[in-house]
């Protein structure tokens, strides 16, 4: 395995460990903004309906599905950002040749 690939693998393992910690240990979210809003009676309703609200699968809401969702979305973000990075380089190469 190449050095870069090894680094990516270790990094992704750390990211997935964060997902595990975020699902099982550090999951309780009570942000200042939400708390202040609640005290004031301000209700924030999102206009768009998110397919996975609060990082859960609405039709099968268990801690395990949240874990799998968190892991898949972390890897998907990695892949998406990689694709965006490559696309930006391609655009640059195209504009350089013009």
């Amino acid at each position: 395995m190449k050095k870069t690939e090894k680094g990516i693998l270790y990094g992704l393992i750390i990211a997935l460990t964060f997902v595990i910690l975020g699902t099982f240990v550090l999951y309780e979210s009570n942000e200042t903004l939400d708390m202040v809003a609640e005290q004031l009676g301000v209700i924030g309703n999102n206009i768009l309906t998110a397919p996975f609200p609060e990082y859960s699968v609405p039709w099968f809401d268990t801690v395990w599905t949240s874990l799998v969702l968190g892991m898949i979305s972390t890897i998907a973000i990695f892949a998406l950002t990689y694709a965006v990075g490559k696309l930006l380089l391609k655009i640059r190469a195209k504009s350089d040749t013009k």
Binding site: L12, L16, F18, I77, F78, Y82
Partner: peptide, 17 residues
């Protein structure tokens, strides 16, 4: 690869409260 990895890493880090 570093850009992709750091983005994934901090996306996951933001899940921990």
């Amino acid at each position: 690869p570093l850009m992709a990895l750091l983005t994934a890493l901090f996306f996951a880090a933001q899940m921990m409260n």
